[in-house]
Design a protein around this nucleic acid. Structure first.
Lengths: 338, 338
DNA sequence: ATGCCAGTTGGTATCGTTAACTTTACAACC
DNA sequence: GGTTGTAAAGTTAACGATACCAACTGGCAT
């Protein structure tokens, strides 16, 4: 049959012919497995290098029913949290010989389902999902695919397969207890609108569980985080009389801080501002927020290791919760000026 | 021959048997190509959905000599610049039906060569590289692979294949001219040590070309950007008498700003501080740096579009330079406090 | 009836690699 | 010398999808 013209890529047969051996010997030499004499292996590798022969991973994957590939699904890359987690994971996988295919869901479950299906089409050796809340059709799809799956960032005791993450409810409670110890009593929570982000909801529940006064939680429009923070703070001050505001993350908290000062509220005297996720940003500014540091890179590395262990048949803990750390705010004041 | 037990994944034959048609008809139905009656297509798609059948992209790639896959090589993901570029590219590719495989080189040419070779093993439809300086063995490897290649972030008039980026030399000259217009005369450049980062070198050359006084450029140790900035500023003040310091990026510039004030130099009176890359960071702080905004997301989108056009046989410009914009500093002062 | 066309449908070789099995080469042993 | 054992190398049939070509439909003009 005549096919479309071959690419110029040398195949394993070209190398075998050039080296005067069979394709099996080339295959063995390329993979570094037993059964080839050192002399022949060297000769073959040299010829392969000269011809710029790169084995076809698709053919290998087909022959082996799955690929040396990890599929990773994240909400977005434009967020230090996911960039950090991804950084830890990718490095670990890369060194273990796995490539990574990535998709971003933009926090949309339908899109997650669609993209995960596309990831599965590559028959990856394993899959990484962000969070523990997914489209109802996702679980059966993964069950049928039958591949190891890591859920990360969120912790849940009963994951689909394995899970490495932080318990956002507990983290909210932890920072809330610290803040309550400072004397604050009337909390508000500013982040995603209720019901739109399970993570935000969990954190809000954790915060609320610590205080006697009900948690004030204004509805927000999704937008640039700085503006969300500022608008959220204004909404909170309009709707009630909070003396401390917990933000979904540090960026929103900085937006809130700006708005608080514009509104004439002294921070931390009149109003407490609390962030989340301890961004690097927070370490170089004159103002140091009270925030919660989350072990994101470590989470990526540990998650990847768990998954690799699972691929090697080692069964460890199904769910690993990671600790967070409350970072007290400070007033490392600095004379400003451009 | 007996192979290792089949995965539970339904193959195209399973679907065909279930639907009572041939595999070719299923193949056509799944791809949405002509030649299947509407009734049969519907029936097949429904069965496929019920069985959670996901086509095997590796088999398809093998059959077609290349995959619906774009390989992307970046220095790192923990840097807003590359996260932004990647964000623009990935979204565009994803919507066009391509998956993306990513590797990170950590600014190491040898590693780039190794990872690019791994990317090529997937027989991607196209490849994206960062920058225009590569390992000498890379070009022949790409030539033999014969796939469309986009170089991005840097601009060069004679790319390997196509190129969308900014001219860092020109950008350095542009901001330097602006700063000279403000009255500064004795420049220093703080970023990567000379010879370690072609981009930094290009920018430094651009800056130097504008001033009469030779550019002071201290040698640095690679580290956290804030500390590099602070240490670089101190080194510059020790080695000479600059009245303005250009930093490789905004993070370093903020580090420098902190160090300048610690050293008792007034900014911008005694010493000018200039950043690069206009990070979001810079829009919410009391201090607003003079910096250069680079169209990173747009670059990603445009680069991806150029590559997609090329894949569809459209030949546009080989090299597209993107304009940058100098952002004047300001003193949007804010009362600080935690 | 017959021929012809357009629209569907099916049979099968092929993509590049590896698993499983077979063959060969050669040395050690009785 | 003949037997046996072992490491190295080769042969062949998959893996799952698609391109190419052939064959089959039904409608319609002749």
């Amino acid at each position: 049959m005549t096919r479309r013209p071959r690419t110029s890529t040398s195949g394993i047969y070209t190398v075998a012919a050039e080296a005067g051996v069979s394709v099996m010997t080339v295959s063995r030499a390329m993979r570094g497995v037993e059964g080839v004499s050192a002399k022949k292996r060297e000769a073959i590798l040299q010829i392969a290098r000269r011809l710029n022969y790169v084995p076809n991973s698709n053919a290998r994957a087909l022959s082996q029913t799955n690929a040396d590939l990890i599929g990773i699904s994240l909400p977005t890359l434009v967020n230090d949290v996911f960039a950090d987690i991804l950084d830890g994971m990718r490095g670990t996988f890369e060194r273990a010989g796995y490539s990574t295919v990535i998709d971003t869901t933009e926090y949309d479950e339908a899109r997650e389902l669609r993209w995960v299906s596309r990831l599965l089409s590559w028959r990856p050796a394993a899959l990484v999902l962000t969070g523990v809340h997914h489209h109802p059709d996702l679980k059966p799809m993964l069950r049928d695919a039958g591949i190891p799956t890591l859920e990360t960032w969120d912790f849940a005791p009963d994951p689909i397969d394995i899970c490495v993450g932080v318990d956002h409810r507990a983290a909210g409670a932890e920072v809330a207890a610290y803040v309550k110890g400072l004397g604050y009593r009337r909390p508000a929570f500013v982040g995603a609108s209720p019901g739109t982000d399970p993570r935000a909801d969990a954190r809000a529940v954790g915060v609320g569980s610590v205080f006697d006064t009900p948690l004030l939680r204004p509805v927000l429009t999704h937008d640039n985080p700085f503006r969300v923070g500022a608008a959220g703070l204004r909404a909170a001050l309009t709707e009630g009389e909070p003396d401390v505001i917990f933000f979904l993350n540090d960026l929103m908290a900085f937006g809130g801080l700006t708005a608080a000062e514009a509104a004439g509220r002294g921070v931390p005297g009149d109003l407490g501002i609390v962030g989340f996720n301890a961004l690097g940003l927070n370490t170089v500014l004159p103002v140091r927020l009270t925030t919660v540091s989350t072990p994101r890179r470590q989470m990526g590395v540990m998650g990847a290791r768990s998954l690799l262990a699972r691929l090697n048949g080692v069964r460890g803990a199904r769910a690993t919760p990671l600790a967070v750390e409350v970072q007290p705010g400070g007033t490392t004041r600095l004379q400003a000026g451009a």
